[in-house]
Nucleic acid binder design. Sequence first.
DNA 1: CCTGCTATTGCAAGTAGTTACAATAATGAA
DNA 2: TTCATTATTGTAACTACTTGCAATAGCAGG
Lengths: 138, 138
Amino acid sequence: MFDQIIETLHQRGFRMTPQRLLVLQILQDAGRHLTPQEIFGQTQRILPAMTEATVYRTLSFLTEQGFILAAHIGNGQLVYEIAGHNHHHLICRACGATQQIDHQFLESLYQQFRSKTGYQIDSLHVTFFGLCPDCQKN
Amino acid sequence: MFDQIIETLHQRGFRMTPQRLLVLQILQDAGRHLTPQEIFGQTQRILPAMTEATVYRTLSFLTEQGFILAAHIGNGQLVYEIAGHNHHHLICRACGATQQIDHQFLESLYQQFRSKTGYQIDSLHVTFFGLCPDCQKN
DNA sequence: CCTGCTATTGCAAGTAGTTACAATAATGAA
DNA sequence: TTCATTATTGTAACTACTTGCAATAGCAGG
């Protein structure tokens, strides 16, 4: 299932462990973004000995390696999901409604950004906050 | 100094306290964004009895009321600054270099965003992460 | 200038996330 | 398959931030 990831890890001098595999499987099965707490909760059914510290370290590690994506949501908490979906979120700060953002559209905006500032903006997974059309009527 | 803020607070049914005034003064004097820890440290010289809990509650409160702005920076920590500056940050995730972003430019981008999705993006204070020109040469 | 209402504070305990360190175990080589 | 190396884990203590609650103190009204 994650043979490609395992091979990439080894090439980079890192190891695959039951804990890392489990976190990947949980995120894969969920098919949506999860909080560290949700992930920790799920690990306990399979690997009861696994600790929260390991969950956090594993999530940081897998994010650095590019296998999963981290995104800020609402309160400032981080959520994680399997990389490769490449979609973005637009969250209404009033009602909480979320909408997916077209990747192509965002890319075109960032291209303008780059030509102006020289910076290449991270666009793997971005979350915007604003007011949705309904809530603008207040 | 903060007469306008005090009056607005009273109109909304809230109170001005030495603690809130102190936090406002610290942010005003600093002229840059500060972390909750930095702010707490400064309060101790003036109001030693003031607690961290009060600092955090005060920062949340003043942000809700629109008198100060909160921004995510680097690690996911929040920093705060007096509202009204209306500038934005662009942070290189590799070397940490920061650059100010022209508000007008950002507005024009968000205008495109709005016409596409209908959402009005929050733009009071935004922080972008990416790679600066130098670090792109890796 | 008092007085009462209640927003706000300090306190202390709780939650989320991080980190140093010694023990463990995944991997490459013999 | 066995062994040595060292990346990774669990433990426990620590930092950042939050929250319930009783005591305090702004401030509107008399």
